[in-house]
């Protein structure tokens, strides 16, 4: 009797998880399925299987160029964010820092609370008030500001497991400050630095609102190009693009989990 109740409970739990996954993943699965659907309108009934939408991407040079732009922006923004977050996390985690540490961490995380469109607009205004164009670097700056708090979270978690005494050990053994960072601090924090970079890269790569006011014809990112494309027409090619992005992001996340044992959520 008790056994069957437990089995029932387990079944209910399993069902709940399945529904939850479906709720989160369902739309995604629909998009992926659509990308293989030969029907030319979107959404529509499934009529078969084709790879032609993927081939169609290759005929749209603006998508390839935008992918390059997005990757470059994402790489630079992620690198900048990780650098800033590492230095901040180092200062916040070291012993001896007086009170206000919590307040500092909150302040550094505050870009999370500002709507991204506002960040984008603010950078545009700032740049124009100095009479300079925003251009490529304005775009990178906006993305870096937005993704930095995510890097900070991850790297702070890394520092929570870091015993600063190893730095002193290195110093007492003759390692100068730079040698100590190279030999001890950075290698020990590498997992959270790599994870921080990867997540920042993904977040920047797929982000639309940050770029809304900051891109020009030369600097259109992939989400901007996609946005422009679906304004004029909707066909499954855009689903094919989205599916490729999901595939890349999922692969990166799985690799992190597998090789660095770092998760976005613990």
């Amino acid at each position: 009797m008790r056994g069957s109740i437990r089995a029932l409970g387990r079944l209910a739990g399993g069902l709940y998880l399945l529904l939850l996954y479906l709720f989160v993943m369902g739309p995604l699965l629909f998009v992926i399925a659509t990308s293989f659907n030969p029907a030319t309108s979107f959404p529509s009934r499934f009529e078969g299987f084709t790879l032609s939408w993927y081939a169609a991407i290759l005929e749209r040079p603006e998508f390839l160029a935008a992918t390059g732009t997005s990757a470059l922006v994402a790489a630079l923004a992620a690198a900048l964010a990780v650098l800033v977050a590492f230095l901040a996390a180092y200062a916040l985690s070291r012993q001896g820092g007086a009170g206000g540490r919590g307040a500092m961490a909150t302040l550094l995380a505050s870009p999370l609370l500002v709507p991204q469109v506002v960040v984008s607009l603010a950078i545009l205004q700032l740049a124009s008030s100095f009479g300079i164009g925003t251009g490529f670097w304005g775009l990178v700056a906006a993305h870096a500001v937005y993704v930095m708090p995510f890097a900070l979270r991850l790297i702070l978690t890394g520092f929570a497991r870091f015993d600063f005494a190893v730095e002193e050990a290195s110093r007492s053994l003759g390692g100068g400050p730079l040698a100590t960072w190279r030999e001890v601090t950075l290698p020990l924090l590498r997992p959270s630095l790599v994870a921080g970079f990867t997540f920042c890269f993904i977040l920047s790569f797929v982000n639309l609102p940050l770029s809304l006011f900051l891109t020009g014809p030369e600097t259109a990112t992939l989400p901007i190009v996609m946005f422009a494309y679906i304004e004029s027409r909707i066909d499954p090619m855009i689903a094919a693009v989205a599916s490729l992005i999901v595939l890349a992001a999922a692969t990166a996340t799985l690799l992190l989990d597998r090789f660095l044992r770092v998760r976005l959520v613990d």
């Binding site: 015993d163 005494a165 190893v166 002193e168 050990a169 110093r171 007492s172 053994l173 003759g174 030999e183």
Partner: peptide, 15 residues
Amino acid sequence: EKREIGVVFQSYALF
């Protein structure tokens, strides 16, 4: 790093 003093830490602080 210039003192030539060896230190054994309470937590050992091994790398």
